[in-house]
Design a protein around this nucleic acid. Sequence first.
DNA 1: GCCGCGCTTATCGTATACAATACTCTATCT
DNA 2: AGATAGAGTATTGTATACGATAAGCGCGGC
Lengths: 248, 248
Amino acid sequence: MQRPSLRIAASQMTDAQRELEPLTPKTLVDQAVEAIIQAAATGVFLPGDRVIEAEVARRLNVSRVPIREALRLLESQGILVNVPYRGMRLMEVDAGRLRKILEVRLALETFAAFKLQEMCKTDPATIAPLDRICADLVAAAKRGDTYGIATLDTKFHRTLCTLTGNEVLVATWEPLSSQLTIIFGLATLQIDMESIAREHSDLADLIRSGRRSALEANLRLHILDSPQSIDFDALIERRKASAGRKKR
Amino acid sequence: MQRPSLRIAASQMTDAQRELEPLTPKTLVDQAVEAIIQAAATGVFLPGDRVIEAEVARRLNVSRVPIREALRLLESQGILVNVPYRGMRLMEVDAGRLRKILEVRLALETFAAFKLQEMCKTDPATIAPLDRICADLVAAAKRGDTYGIATLDTKFHRTLCTLTGNEVLVATWEPLSSQLTIIFGLATLQIDMESIAREHSDLADLIRSGRRSALEANLRLHILDSPQSIDFDALIERRKASAGRKKR
DNA sequence: GCCGCGCTTATCGTATACAATACTCTATCT
DNA sequence: AGATAGAGTATTGTATACGATAAGCGCGGC
């Protein structure tokens, strides 16, 4: 699960250190985890749905064992809820839970942003990667690439954590990110892409500026309030309706 | 993993809501998780040690399957590190990693403490459970109960998170706590029990007082600095030496 | 003597088979 | 008619068996 972050670190190596990547083998468990998250994000599974081992196994053409391990992993990330002998369900989400997730995420990223602010004082180049992502974000907004926007948005915030050099922070942040991915799914199209790009640039500038309380306030606004503006409950209802399933 | 928190919530129910607990069955996976954490905390496994499925399975008298799932769970909590086809190892710890864990924990608990401060303004009874724990802590210190101190210490901080009503926060906090349990193991005897009890009472008072920056500073001191004072690297070396194993 | 090659063994990854538990539906009793 | 007990089915939990991969060791070539 922390492997993606390692890959990011690798892509940031200087030429002197550049080597062939270690390329760790992907086991079925890893693939299953990805597949399940993706399925949840694209609405194949809906919040509250049961996730049946045998069914997943059959659809992915593997046995139940690796699936079980993948499900356990997702359980401990809060994405699935397990009751012994009664099976796994995708997490139930409502506006309240969304807010709780966002609040925790805010706490983590505020810490990260403050830390980066400190690091910038000695070396302003620290946050160069954030600027790069902001540039990509602007480009994606220009060409109306909603998928790109969503990906880069997540990447920005992950990088925010990564740059602190605290792997524990990244590892702690990751499950929250996964949960949000699943909750929002493809809902990103609802929002104004230009403003997304601008908000991130502002954040990067504020980190650079060294103004602590302004950064804090802005981050709070960016994380907590922006997503709240979309009509969440309606979104959930719409997704449920579009699938039109009853197997609860 | 979040089941303990549920149990806590149950013990705080008012009489009106009090019912028989749902009593969920304990599968071998759950038991295995507990056993492994305990083993790690008591020094049966040392940081960096390999944790071999078959061996654990044999010693717990179960097959490998439930063990594998338990190990996956612990992996995603950062307690174990897995490299495909090469097995699991207990996390490697040094002073740097300890600090990283503590920093993230501080970020989470600061958020929790601030939130409780807000909640106290409308209902001061909110943090009554913390006061109770503080009382127990004093009692434990009086009778020199080191194990009780350690347990109550953890319980205080978990309750700090629980009282915010944000389950996501608790779930995010829990893995950090487990990691710290393993790192410190039985090292609690090194420290002054009276001062531990006092520090927690001070924190509770500060939450009640509503003084924001004083609370922040005190929490930082309590979480970050106090544990740093013990000679960490020496502790690790001592534990490794006392086991005298070489199987790395 | 040292380096590289292939074999052996330990261990992990996956599949299959069986046991335990919970849900569902029907038949029966009151 | 309603409730209830029971059988049958679906699904999860666990055990065993087999295949895949990597570390360790001895052999032969240079």
